[in-house]
């Protein structure tokens, strides 16, 4: 794995897009402190059956996003970012599958006063992760709008959808 250094700090951005007709795509973008892409991973579309939805019940999201999508993407990545950020709350479940600090990026109108502000967004992390997330994000916050990389992932996932025929249920 590529190690993060002070000069070569890396940051992970994790999100998922539920695309009608295709299924759930996970996307993970690792950027350097200037916001330039270093590594990108995306999953094949994942479609959950009705039976799986019923049987997993409330635990589905945690399993699907945290383990099947989030954990898989992080495990396949060769980068070691300082922090993993997500704008999709169910993906926070990935925290129990990784040693990396994970935090959610929220617009102020979504987060209210919760978390702490970085540029135009607010960051929500667990109490144990918050100090380290706050410290590590300082390296890139001056240059990069932390909500912007998620737009790139979505654009790339849209492109991936065009390349992928619609999925059948798993």
């Amino acid at each position: 794995m590529e190690q993060a250094t002070t000069d070569g700090a890396l940051f992970g951005f994790l999100t998922a897009v539920d695309a009608p007709g295709h299924g759930l795509f996970g996307g993970y973008l690792v950027v350097d402190a200037r916001g330039r892409p270093v590594e990108f991973l995306c999953t094949a579309p994942l479609k959950v059956t009705r039976a799986q939805q019923i049987l997993y019940g409330a635990t589905l999201h945690g399993h699907l996003h945290g383990e099947q999508v989030g954990s898989t993407l992080l495990a396949e990545s060769e980068s070691q970012p300082l922090v993993v950020l997500t704008d999709f709350e169910p993906l926070l479940a990935v925290r129990s599958h990784t040693s990396l600090p994970v935090a959610a990026v929220k617009r102020p109108d979504e987060a209210g006063e919760a978390g702490f502000a970085v540029g135009s967004v607010r960051i929500l992390a667990t109490a144990s992760d918050e100090p380290v997330v706050r410290e590590r994000l300082a390296a890139m916050a001056a240059a990069v709008d932390l909500s912007e990389p998620f737009e790139r992932i979505r654009l790339a996932i849209e492109e991936a959808q065009r390349m992928t025929p619609p999925a059948r249920a798993a």
């Binding site: 590594e39 999953t43 799986q52 099947q68 060769e78």
Partner: peptide, 10 residues
């Protein structure tokens, strides 16, 4: 739910 295949770009 099976683990999805992953494509990776560096």
């Amino acid at each position: 739910v099976p683990r999805p295949a992953v494509r990776r770009f560096r």
